[in-house]
Amino acid sequence: MALPTRESVEDPIVLSDPGAVARRQWVAAYVKRLVITDTVTVLAAVLTAQWVRFGTFDVQVQSKAVRFLGYGIVTVGLVALWLCALAIFRTRSPRVVGSGDEEYRRIISSTFWLFGFVAIVALLAGLDLARLYLAIALPMGLTGLMLGRWLWRRRVARWRERGQLQTTVLVVGSQRSVEDLIESFSRGTAHGYRVVGACIPGPEGLRGGTIRAAGSEVPLLGSEGDVVAALEHTGADTVVITATERVGHRGIRDLLWELEDSGVDLVVAPGIIDISGPRLEMRPVAGLPLIHVEKPQYHGAKSFAKTSFDVVFSLLVLLFVSPLMIAAAIAVKLTSKGPVFYKSVRIGLDGRPLRFSQ
């Protein structure tokens, strides 16, 4: 399998080494760029907050417990703590960067945890930190971090649409599961997953054949016992197992041992599709990782969050359109008789009548 060479790409983040080594190298280069972007963003946000609040970098913190503590020291400490929080929450983990919402959730969580920690420390130490200073640094830094990650994703998506920065996948499963996986990956080229080979368990796993799906052909490279040889042939950096009932837990464990020193990732696809991520929850039971699919309903914190959003959003919309509604009500009243609101009865849930005003 021929991977993009350094000369064939306009950016040096793509390397010419095959397989898992190439993937580790471009991921490491991408993560380094994220570190630089995050550092510049956090530094700019905190320095801007201090300059806007005080107009200088030589200001003393009002504190009874600590003397001669300037905001310059506070700024340096806040930047260092912010970068440490991003690292602790693994916001630049190769498993979350580039796709999905987990990367953004970790950035938000790390930022709010940091400012909560700063607030507690300031309270316990008797530091009277300027509220406007923190009020500027928090939203500005968070917005900058999210925007920076989004811009990097856009750039990586363009590279992947051109066939670069791909995660090459070897699938172990039935022909139907391989076809479904190819079709799923073809719908999201920005995610960068590309099936380069398949091993079908049992007597059907014959070498030399191909599987056609989503306009591409994937070669058959044997059965579940030929995974290591197929990896050497294709240079794939990820193995996806869909036929867990044929491979078995012992087979998966043995394959993990064989791949331990190769740097190849092993992924088990449960075959659950078109279900949103929040409804899936992994729960280990008796040593077995079971995936529980929650019912499509809101409860607890999710119900509170949804209700709060509905109420706040509705109030904002009503406030925004209220001048137009008032003008329409006046026009109706001046040009026609009767009430401004038209009342009617509709049949709702479980046959209950509901009164509507329009």
Rank of each mutant, 00 (worst) to 15 (best):
P94L: 03
G116F: 13
R95D: 13
S93V: 00
T111Q: 14
R90C: 05
F115W: 12
D101K: 06
R90M: 02
I88T: 12
R105S: 07
I108K: 04
E103I: 00
G116M: 13
I108P: 05
Y104N: 11
F117S: 14
S93I: 04
R92I: 05
R90I: 08
E103C: 04
A87R: 12
G116I: 13
E102G: 04
W113S: 12
I107V: 15
I107A: 05
V118P: 05
Y104C: 04
F117D: 06
R92H: 07
S99P: 00
A85C: 10
S109P: 02
E103V: 01
E102L: 11
V118W: 01
E102M: 07
V118N: 09
F115Y: 15
L114S: 07
F117H: 04
S99R: 15
V96C: 00
R95F: 03
R106M: 04
E103T: 02
S109T: 15
A87M: 08
G100C: 09
F117M: 15
R95S: 09
V118I: 15
E103G: 06
T91L: 01
C84M: 10
C84F: 11
V96M: 01
R90Y: 05
I108R: 04
G98Y: 07
D101H: 09
L86K: 03
D101I: 06
R90Q: 12
R105H: 10
T91V: 12
P94T: 02
G98R: 03
G116V: 10
S110K: 09
C84A: 15
F89D: 08
G98I: 07
R90D: 12
